[in-house]
């Protein structure tokens, strides 16, 4: 009985696929989305990814190994396919960087080129990596950044970030303006870790689940 009831409840919750390309701690993103009410699956199953109303590309670590692991499992194609199909999509940290043309971290490895810019080493005299909370400077109102309060603080761990473009919706200051979030159409991406940014980060995850399930955050 309990199992059937759980299955029915799970059906009513929006299905979010967190793309599992096998390296790094990808569980945190899954736990975060589950916490805000999504039926979240960490998966490398293309069929399940195609069933999901929202797709998340998480990431920790380095650009080159992440990109190679994604390609080795053939997941690069389903990621681009879902993005081109207009499915709500969220790239996080290295998962954001992989959406760009490439990265100075390993220039011979191509990115997914959803955004045509390059990911570059942070031009700063401050310590690298940036391992700290930082305050967002919001450049453009966007649903990702709705209801974050007056001073949104998010947790960053990175040495590289995408170069500026018209898709940048928020930056942080780390010895200069650093790209913190980009968005274009159905594609959202964040350099920070919303799944590790306490209440503020959980709100962003909740904003994405709402976007993916055509609901308001209050309806989740």
């Amino acid at each position: 009985m309990a199992t059937i009831q759980q299955a029915q409840e799970a059906k009513q919750r929006p299905l979010i696929a967190v793309v599992d390309y096998g390296i790094g701690n990808l569980h945190s993103a899954q736990k975060g989305f589950s916490h805000v009410g999504a039926d979240t699956r960490l998966t490398n199953d293309c069929a399940l990814i195609r069933d999901a109303c929202g797709v998340v590309l998480p990431g920790v670590g380095a650009f080159g190994p992440a990109m190679r692991a994604l390609r080795a499992r053939g997941l690069d194609e389903v990621v681009v396919e879902r993005i081109e199909a207009g499915v709500p999509f969220f790239g996080i940290c290295v998962g954001m960087q992989m959406l760009f043309a490439g990265s100075e971290e390993e220039p011979q490895v191509r990115g997914l080129n959803v955004f045509s810019q390059m990911v570059r080493l942070l031009p700063t005299s401050l310590k690298l990596p940036q391992i700290q909370w930082n305050k967002l400077n919001i450049h453009r109102d966007h649903r990702m950044l709705a209801d974050l309060g007056d001073e949104p603080w998010l947790y960053f761990v990175h040495s590289y970030a995408p170069e500026p473009s018209e898709d940048v919706i928020a930056t942080c200051d780390y010895g200069g303006a650093v790209t913190a979030a980009v968005a274009r159409g159905n594609v959202w991406a964040a350099q920070f870790h919303p799944e590790k940014s306490s209440v503020c980060g959980l709100r962003i995850l909740s904003n994405f689940v709402a976007f993916a399930s055509h609901k308001l955050p209050s309806e989740l």
Partner: peptide, 8 residues
């Protein structure tokens, strides 16, 4: 801890 706390 990871299930319930969302800071590093």
């Amino acid at each position: 801890v990871a299930e319930q706390v969302f800071i590093p």
